[in-house]
Structure formats: C-alpha cells, structure tokens
Amino acid sequence: MVEFLTIKSGAKLFRFEHNDILYIEAAKNYSDVHIAGSNKIDTFSIQIGEIADYIRSQLKQTASSFIRVGKSLIINRNYVQCIDVSNGKLELYCGVGRAIECDVFKYSSNDYDKDRKKYRTETSPEYQMRNTNIKIELSASREALIKLRDELLED
C-alpha cells in the first residue's frame, strides 16, 4: 500500500511516497527529510514533532513504519539493517541506490532564494557517507537502541 506524506512549506507543497523516506532528522528548528536511494535531503522549517504529527494523521496504514528514536530522529523501520547497542549506532541500508551529489535545499517560509544558498557542509561526515555509499549510520542513545531492537524483534 502506498501512502503519501504531504508537507507544506511556504508556497510549496511536497509529497513523499512513504517508503521513499529513509529517515527524518531534527536540526534545531528545522527537519531534514532524507530520501531513500538518493542523497536528496529536503529540509523544512518545522520541528520534527510536527512532522511526526503529519505522519500520524496522514499515513493511515503505513504510519507505523516510522519510529521516532529519541528527540531528533524518525526512521523508517523498513531500512534498518543493524542496531549496534554497545556503540550506540544504528545502520540504515536502502538497497540499490544512486550516489549522486548531495544537493541540499533549505526552505524557509519567507525567502526561498536567499536560503537556497545555505548548503549543508560537504565535509560533514554524514554527508560524505551519504555521498559515497548507500549505508547510513546514525547515532542514538543506548537505551533508545535497546527499545528499538526489542520493537523490531517483534516483527
């Protein structure tokens, strides 16, 4: 079943097929939506909690594919490959992907063109990793990872 998550940002409306979303990461007052199989990140000037609400309200059948891990991460459980509790690491793997240049767009509610120039640094480890392979490593607290592991063991 395919469902769409719709996020409105300024004058634009973004629609994501639910299984295209790899994970969502909070960045202060913004949220980055990472798309599976590409290095594309959509950033929205809404908090991750609001995105969680959108997921709950819009995705009737598939909302439970998404698990909020801690305060700043929402992952798509279908892409979880490895949970390393001892090192506090969570690996997501999105199968066949394309390594393309990361093109980060940051949208604000007011000035799209001005903010467009503000890219995430290419030297950040997360960016490089995304750019070079289709395996993503995220950090989370050990307690949260234990709970996530137990949740996924029920699958």
Binding site: G49, S64, I67, R68, G70, K71, E143, E151
Partner: peptide
C-alpha cells in the same frame, strides 16, 4: 519525548 525513548508513529 526523551532521547532514551522510542515511539512507533501510528
């Protein structure tokens, strides 16, 4: 929501 918690959305 704490960093040590998880929540299944939906």
């Amino acid at each position: 929501m704490k960093d040590t918690d998880i929540e299944v959305l939906g």
